[in-house]
């Protein structure tokens, strides 16, 4: 079984906002993680939760090598890389 690696680091993300989309309104395109550019191929799942007044989006994106779980805090507008899941 592939292992999940918990990272929990702040990252920079380029995202596309589409308020008319039915599933998710935010589509991450790429992220800068430890001076590495990771391009995303697909948004696999997006879920939301609330911590107090802050709305937190959890986005699972697939690149060509791995899946990445990103967390977007709509209160602070910060992105966080939660974990990396290998695809094998």
């Amino acid at each position: 079984m592939a292992s999940d690696t918990f990272i929990n680091e702040q990252v920079s993300v380029w995202a596309f906002f589409d308020p008319s989309a039915a599933s998710s309104h935010i589509f991450p395109i790429a992220m800068n993680w430890r001076r590495r550019l990771v391009k995303f191929q697909k948004l696999i799942l997006s879920t939301t939760k609330r911590v107090g007044d802050a709305k937190i989006l959890n986005l699972i994106c697939a690149s060509d090598t791995a899946c990445f779980e990103l967390e977007y805090n709509s209160d602070s507008h910060l992105w966080r890389l939660v974990k990396v899941m290998s695809q094998e």
């Binding site: 079984m1 999940d4 699972i60 899946c67 899941m85 695809q87 094998e88």
Partner: peptide, 10 residues
Amino acid sequence: QQANPVLRGK
């Protein structure tokens, strides 16, 4: 399984 493609089919 939706969240983690590795789990699909297992």
